[in-house]
Design a protein around this nucleic acid. Structure first.
Lengths: 166, 166
DNA sequence: TTGAATTTTCAATAATTTTTGAAACTTTTA
DNA sequence: TAAAAGTTTCAAAAATTATTGAAAATTCAA
């Protein structure tokens, strides 16, 4: 396999992978492209390499910046903005996990908290409360782990891994 | 909040939550509904309670069965099929994690394995390989943890939790 | 067997999500 | 300050994904 072919395959797959994680295909493809590029590249290069419009490129680059996965850099003498991806995959994983926790776990916990307060003494009501409580307890468990995981560094992660495996 | 209102809110939110996890809204809503029901219910009840068509109800119930989240049961004297959800939230989490690992992590690892084999001695090629290798190493780390997590039970999970937190 | 009850399939339609591209806006240079 | 260079916005269009509903297939009781 040639390098250009391998890069293409990686970028496409990263895009497809993104869709399964609730991220849109193009955002993930832009991320994949930037992971492949050692140097910062411009919006025009992203547009050209992925064959997408300026608006689309701009929006998805901004989204990646919001997630903390991409940084804006300026080239000396250049007026244009250039972009570079965080390459440390542990940091990438932490950033993604942190954002997903915030966007997915927190909202559901709020809902669970609300519906737990239901006033109902019937058997049906008790069963519902029990079910909701168990989900919330589990969500708390997951939340704690994710918080620890995302507040830490590679070393802690490796240590934890060893602990778990022992 | 009344019980019916709380259930409705829970079901709707579970549906929305699903969309963020790459599951379609209706599949998650059917799951939410079944989590609320102590007894097994029929396709017709699912259709009626969620206001969806027979085809839609059928497809999403089958999908939930594929994931192992729902079981088909027969009521004595009834020809119709009834469905009941797994209520143990730890088991639910394990089933979902197992399925997502299979659908999301495995395919990307296969791609990484392929693109790692690129023949290229240039600096650019080396950098690409290094990047892909790091991702694959991390994916392996995640894979191991998920495998352990999903091959085990609630007790192991709690023990692990304590280990991590200490 | 037969046929009524039930489940499944899938082409057509609807709903949702993504993308485009040009206008508006902002920043920088001359 | 003017205008060129670059960035952002967003309504309309395109693409994708989900849903319907009726026909086909299956199951089961008689």
């Amino acid at each position: 396999m040639k390098l250009s072919e391998a890069k293409q395959k990686f970028i496409d797959s990263w895009g497809t992978f993104g869709t399964k994680w609730g991220i849109n295909r193009t955002m993930a493809a832009v991320h994949g492209l930037l992971l492949c590029e050692e140097q910062a590249i411009s919006t025009d290069e992203v547009m050209e390499k992925l064959g997408i419009s300026r608006g689309n490129a701009n929006m998805n680059i901004r989204a990646l910046i919001d997630w903390g996965l991409v940084k804006k850099v300026y080239q000396p003498g250049e007026r244009m903005e250039f972009f570079i991806a965080e390459k440390d995959i542990y940091k990438v994983a932490i950033l993604i996990t942190r954002e997903r926790r915030r966007r997915e776990l927190e909202p559901i916990r709020e809902i669970l908290k609300e519906v737990k307060e239901v006033e109902d003494k019937t058997a049906e009501g008790k069963q519902f409360k029990k079910m909701v409580n168990e989900i919330d307890e589990f969500a708390g468990f997951a939340d704690n782990i994710l918080e620890k995981l995302t507040k830490t560094d590679r070393l802690w992660m490796l240590k934890t891994f060893k602990k778990i495996m022992s």
